[in-house]
């Protein structure tokens, strides 16, 4: 059972102009000595533009510095601060409290990732599966030896994959995926979308080798087109689209 620890009556040390406040519930769990997670509650003032990450940092600054959270860029570019916010995977730096339309904001670590502590999760498997699909251009003549060996690409060819190149490896898609929820071996929407990113690149010649990697029992066939990955992607990558195109190659719908 979750233990609730409220320090809502504590005062912040900095002057706050906002009259609005939100109850921030933070999941606390240290796998080294906790049996289960518990929630701690904090009253945090916020403005129209305050993000969930800023609220968490406010808690760290004024209430409890031991809250573990990973972040870096604060502008949805580094992909570090993914977490469950009110039950849905989102980037904390890209989610405004005012947009959640709730007096209570609950933050938990992302599902389907091992927890390091509190809100920070391990990304090793995400990076391993990403690496598995060979996320680089494959061709025999990749070394540029003369100025004439530039790999030209038309804007139309660029459009085929540029959307999928927006992936910041935040892991939200893997957290939302219903297959990832139960299948520990599934390669995941992030890696599959990146496989399509390179397959669709006109400069790449590694389509067959990548299709061979994902054409296995825990590969692309475990995707059932629920589309949750695309709905939570903060960069508009639309992994579900890429995965279906990729499967289209294997089923003979595309060549």
């Amino acid at each position: 059972m979750a233990q609730v620890s409220s320090i809502a009556n504590e005062q912040t040390s900095t002057p706050v102009s906002s009259s609005k406040s939100v109850m921030l519930r933070i999941s606390r769990y240290n796998p080294e000595h906790d049996d289960s997670s518990k929630f701690m509650e904090f009253n945090v003032p916020y403005e129209k533009w305050t993000t969930v990450l800023e609220a968490i940092l406010e808690v760290k600054k004024h209430f409890d510095h031991s809250v573990a959270v990973r972040y870096s860029c604060r502008q949805a570019t580094c992909g570090s601060c993914g977490m469950m916010i009110n039950g849905k995977p989102r980037l904390a730096c890209f989610t405004k409290i005012s947009e959640l339309d709730s007096d209570v904001v609950t933050v938990e670590p992302m599902n389907n990732f091992p927890i390091i502590r509190d809100l920070a999760v391990k990304f090793e498997r995400l990076f391993d599966t990403h690496q598995k699909i060979k996320p680089y251009l494959i061709r025999d003549d990749t070394e540029l030896e003369t100025d004439e060996r530039e790999f030209l690409q038309s804007p139309k060819e660029l459009e085929q994959y540029i959307q999928f190149a927006n992936c910041i490896k935040c892991g939200l898609c893997n957290s939302a995926c219903p297959t990832m929820a139960t299948d520990s071996s599934f390669v995941g929407p992030q890696a599959l979308a990146q496989a399509y990113r390179y397959v669709a690149d006109s400069r790449d010649k590694g389509k067959d080798s990548r299709l061979k990697i994902i054409d296995e029992s825990h590969g692309i066939w475990r995707c059932h087109f629920a589309g949750s990955c695309s709905q939570v992607c903060p960069k508009g990558v639309d992994p579900a689209m890429g995965i279906q195109f990729l499967r289209g190659y294997l089923l003979g719908f595309r060549s």
Binding site: E159, Q163, S230, D238, A240, M241, G242, G248
Partner: peptide, 23 residues
């Protein structure tokens, strides 16, 4: 049909708020 890549949209530069074309 979706699994064959039919009717799931066309790749394009996404615009905020990033409504997924596949849905």
């Amino acid at each position: 049909l979706g699994h064959g890549g039919i009717g799931v949209g066309t790749p394009a530069r996404p615009d905020y708020p990033y409504d997924p074309a596949s849905q």
